[in-house]
């Protein structure tokens, strides 16, 4: 794990692998990284907004749990973005197949499940409030 982290911060090591690719591929890889980073930032922003703009929810501290979950998910997305960028860059330079990843599917399921839970919370409050 520490070796992988050291590799992220060592651009010379990455440039020593394989052949220099068409620069457009590197730019496209970088834009994909930035798009993932903005996805992570959006989750962080969502967590920060939930903490300060949501009204108190029926369960105690549910608001804080939602906020912290979104913040940690956003941080995870950012770390995974740089790892995927480095592995993709390496594969492009070596002419290998691009790395496959389950992460987008897992993230989509997690966001979907979270949304479903919130729908239930909203309905419980709407019915309980009558």
């Amino acid at each position: 794990m520490w070796a992988a982290i050291r590799h992220w911060f060592d651009p010379a090591e990455l440039r020593s692998v394989g052949e220099p690719p068409d620069y457009r591929f590197s730019l496209a890889n970088e834009r994909t990284f930035l798009a993932w980073l903005r996805t992570g930032l959006a989750l962080v922003g969502g967590g920060l907004a939930a903490a300060q703009f949501l009204p108190p929810l029926p369960m105690s501290h549910l608001r804080e749990v939602i906020a912290v979950a979104l913040l940690l998910l956003g941080g995870t997305v950012a770390i995974r973005a740089v790892d995927h960028w480095a592995r993709t860059e390496r594969a492009i330079r070596l002419g290998q197949e691009l790395p496959a990843s389950r992460f987008p599917a897992i993230l989509a399921l997690a966001v979907g499940a979270g949304a479903l839970l919130l729908v239930v919370a909203v309905l419980v409050r709407a019915i309980g409030g009558r």
Binding site: F9, P11, A51, E64, A67, V68, L71, L72
Partner: peptide, 27 residues
């Protein structure tokens, strides 16, 4: 393209997330 900027920017994003967690817990 590439370079150390990318991991550093990701690290900054993680930093913002952790500071956000601290701010929520402080409340």
């Amino acid at each position: 393209t590439g370079g150390r900027t990318l991991p550093l920017v990701a690290l900054g994003t993680v930093g913002l997330a952790l500071l956000g967690v601290l701010a929520v817990l402080r409340g």
